[in-house]
Nucleic acid binder design. Structure first.
Ligand SMILES: [Mn+2]
Ligand SMILES: [Mn+2]
Ligand SMILES: [Zn+2]
Ligand SMILES: [Zn+2]
Lengths: 143, 143
DNA sequence: TTACTACTTTAGAATCATTCTAATTTTCTT
DNA sequence: AAGAAAATTAGAATGATTCTAAAGTAGTAA
């Protein structure tokens, strides 16, 4: 793990976080924030999040979930990861970190940044700046 | 549409490579091998490859291109890269190497493995072995 | 509160990469 | 050349995501 400790989040806290991000605290955004912004490091797809919201008695349109995830992303509340399977996973771990990917299941496992020595970067192409540096280790179950 | 493409390998060479990979040298596979296996390091999507084959007077069904790319992948002749945009790119550079990704265009640029110091890997989860280790540096054009 | 307006949600359609199906064609072997 | 196996193909299907445009909601000023 990465040292993130679960901190339960109330609807009021969720609303406050949303306001701080200049997002109107709608019922839908609050429900999503309550689930995703509790400090736990997770990787969820839009569909997984929908199932979870149904379980919690807050079903909503899939389009709304996509809308909210994009807004949360823009606000820096979640980060998309494109490496596993077909669906984008949204990462609630905002620290710099890397991933193991189970190639069979597509599941992501965080690599603690303390456990890895970041490599020296090569010279970047002219006119570009590095936005993110991501190490992905694809894992396969030993036979 | 019509771009500058380098000189391909000969159909005979392509057919021989295919036989060595236990793939029947069909007209379609030969055409694809001629374009992709000329030793140049490239990153192509299925659709880009189709356009190129049309330019070369060897149009074929998109399904065939997908079939062939999968077979080439299984034979170790190309490697898929999933990091850029929505479409999978097939990499003809089989050496261990890493990638810059232009986040605007999705274009991949190889990072010479000599230019980078591979990090020490952390302990893998029990029962897994590392299949690939991939470093991706996302680049954004300086404003 | 009311009214206004901008923002948000929503169902369903559309899009796009990719995969599947089932029929036809080609390759390889006798 | 003939038969069996493998490959190609058009078009349909799939699945994640985005779009559309209509209906609902939230913030705000009167
Ligand atoms: Mn993908
Ligand atoms: Mn993607
Ligand atoms: Zn993560
Ligand atoms: Zn490459």
């Amino acid at each position: 793990m990465t040292g993130n400790h679960p901190k339960p989040i109330s609807p009021e806290e969720a609303a406050e976080t949303l306001r701080a991000a200049s997002l109107r605290p709608t019922r839908q955004r609050i429900a999503i924030a309550e689930r995703l912004l509790d400090g736990r490091a997770r990787h969820v797809s839009a569909e997984q999040l929908r199932d979870e919201l149904v379980d919690y008695g807050q079903p909503m349109a899939l389009a709304t979930i996509y809308n909210c995830l994009h807004q949360f992303e823009e606000a820096g509340l979640v980060r998309p990861v494109h490496h596993a399977g077909d669906a984008v996973l949204y990462d609630t771990n905002l620290c710099d970190h890397h991933h193991f990917v189970d190639v069979e299941t597509g599941e992501l496992i965080d690599i603690d940044p303390g456990e890895i020595i970041l490599p020296e970067l090569p010279d970047l192409p002219d006119g570009f700046e590095a936005e993110t540096i991501e190490l992905t280790v694809r894992l396969r179950r030993k036979s």
